[in-house]
Design a binder for these strands. Structure first.
Lengths: 219, 219
DNA sequence: CAGAATGCGACACGGACCGTGCCGATAGAT
DNA sequence: ATCTATCGGCACGGTCCGTGTCGCATTCTG
C-alpha cells in the first residue's frame, strides 16, 4: 500500500545531474559508498520523514544510480534495516547500579525518547509498516533488534531476583514480552505520547506484582 | 513503501470486462454498491491478503470503475477502516459473569484469535502499516476502535474493584494501556504467536499486582 | 605500466498503482 | 417522458519499482 495521501509529489526535481554532496572527490566505490548511502538514508529520514523514503529518492539524493543501491540491498526495507542498526544505539542497555525500579524506568524512558525523535523514529516506523505485509521481515526485526532487548531485560530482572529485590518464587521470563512490548502500543497505534505516565503504570504493576516490600517496592 | 518483494504481478488479468459476481442484475447504485464494495474488500483480504489490496484490484474485482470507489472513500486506508468496522465484531466485549481473571482471559484469547485469522488480520495490518506514515490515521484508529476497547476494559476492571476482587486503593486507569496493548507487541513486531502463554503472563502480573488474595487470585 | 575486471552513473524500459478527467449509458426521481 | 446523479470504461500523467544496457572510471593484476 502507498499510504500517505500525498505520497505523490515528492522530493525529486528531475534535475539532469547529481546533488551537491556528490562529485566532489573522485567516484566513491565499495564500502565507502555503502557507508555514504546509509548516511544519506539517515539524513533523508531525518529531513523528510518516512513518507519521502524511496530507493529512487535516496539514489537521486546521493547522486547515484539505482543499481548502486540494488547491488547492496535487495529492497528498501533491507536498506532500512541496516540503517536502523546505525541508530539502534548501544546505550539501549540497562544500568545495574540503581534499584531495579530505577534502572527499568531509566531504560524505558531512554527507549521512548529514542523512538520519539528522528532519525530512529521514522526509519523504525517504515520498517514496521513494511513488516506488516512480510512475515519474514517481522522475523528479522525480532532477531536483529528485539531479541537483544528482551534478553537484556531478562538479564536485568534476574539480577534483581538474585539481589533479593524481586520475589524469587516466580519465573520472570514470560513477563518479558509485557515489559518489552507494552510501550509499543501507544507508539504504533495511537498518537498519544509514550510518556512517563504509561511507563510508571507498567513499572508499578510489575513491582506491585513481583517486588518484595522488605526491599524497595512501593505502591 | 511497497513492502512485499513480489508486490508486482498481482491479481489483475487485463480482462476487458467485469468479473463474475457483477453484471448479473441491473447496475447497482448508492448504498447497495457501498455495501457490496465493503464485502468485496473483505473477500479479497481473505483470499489474497493485504499485499493484494489496492483500489485498482478491488475495483476490478467488483466490476466497478475506480471513481465508484473514490466517490465513497478518499483513499484505500479510508475504505479499509470502514471495512474493518464490519469485522470488528461486537463480541469484542467482556463478560461480567465470571471472575475478573477468567473474564479478562477469555476476552484476550478471543481478541488474539480475531487477529490471527482473516479477514480481520490482514485488513488490520494494512491499516496499521498505512498509519505508520500518517499520524492522522493513527488517531483515527484509536478513536474508532481502540478507545472503545480501552473503556470497556476499564469498566470491567472497575466493576471488579467494586465487587471486591481487586484492590480498591489503586486507580486502574493508567494500567489500561498495559492491559490493552501488551498483546500487540508480538503481533506487530514478531512472528511468535500471541498465545495463551503471553496472555497468562500478563494476567498473572496484573492479578499479582492488584488482586486481593482473600477473593480469588493466585501465584 | 598496461590490461583486465569490476564498480559505477546515466538512461531507458515495462509494469503496478495512484488520482483525475471525460465519455456515453443507465437508473431512479419528477 | 424527461432530468439528473451515478455509473462503467477508458485514457492520462505521475511515482516508484526492479531490470537491462552502455560507456566510462577506478582499482586490481600481471
Amino acid at each position: 500500500m502507498n499510504a500517505s495521501p500525498d505520497s505523490h509529489r515528492r522530493q525529486q526535481p528531475p534535475q539532469p545531474s547529481q546533488s551537491a554532496n556528490a562529485s566532489k572527490s573522485p567516484r566513491r566505490r565499495g564500502a565507502e559508498r555503502t557507508r555514504e548511502l546509509l548516511e544519506v538514508t539517515l539524513a533523508m529520514a531525518d529531513e523528510v520523514g518516512y513518507g519521502g523514503l524511496s530507493i529512487e529518492a535516496i539514489a537521486w539524493r546521493a547522486g547515484v544510480g539505482k543499481h548502486t543501491i540494488y547491488r547492496r540491498w535487495s529492497s528498501l526495507p533491507e536498506l532500512l534495516l541496516d540503517t536502523l542498526e546505525h541508530v539502534w544505539v548501544s546505550d539501549f542497555d540497562y544500568r545495574t547500579t540503581g534499584s531495579i525500579r530505577d534502572d527499568l524506568r531509566e531504560q524505558f524512558i531512554r527507549s521512548s525518547q529514542g523512538l520519539k525523535s528522528p532519525p530512529l523514529g521514522p526509519i523504525y516506523r517504515a520498517v514496521i509498516a513494511a513488516a506488516q505485509s512480510d512475515e519474514q521481515l517481522r522475523e528479522t526485526i525480532h532477531a536483529r533488534f528485539l531479541a537483544t532487548v528482551e534478553s537484556r531485560t531478562l538479564a536485568r530482572v534476574r539480577l534483581a531476583q538474585d539481589r533479593g529485590e524481586l520475589r524469587s518464587d516466580v519465573d520472570l521470563e514470560p513477563t518479558i514480552d509485557v515489559l518489552a512490548g507494552s510501550l509499543y502500543y501507544r507508539w504504533v497505534l495511537t498518537t498519544r505520547p509514550v510518556d512517563e505516565g504509561v511507563i510508571d503504570a507498567l513499572i508499578d504493576m510489575f513491582m506491585d506484582a513481583y517486588g518484595r516490600s522488605d526491599h524497595s517496592a512501593g505502591g
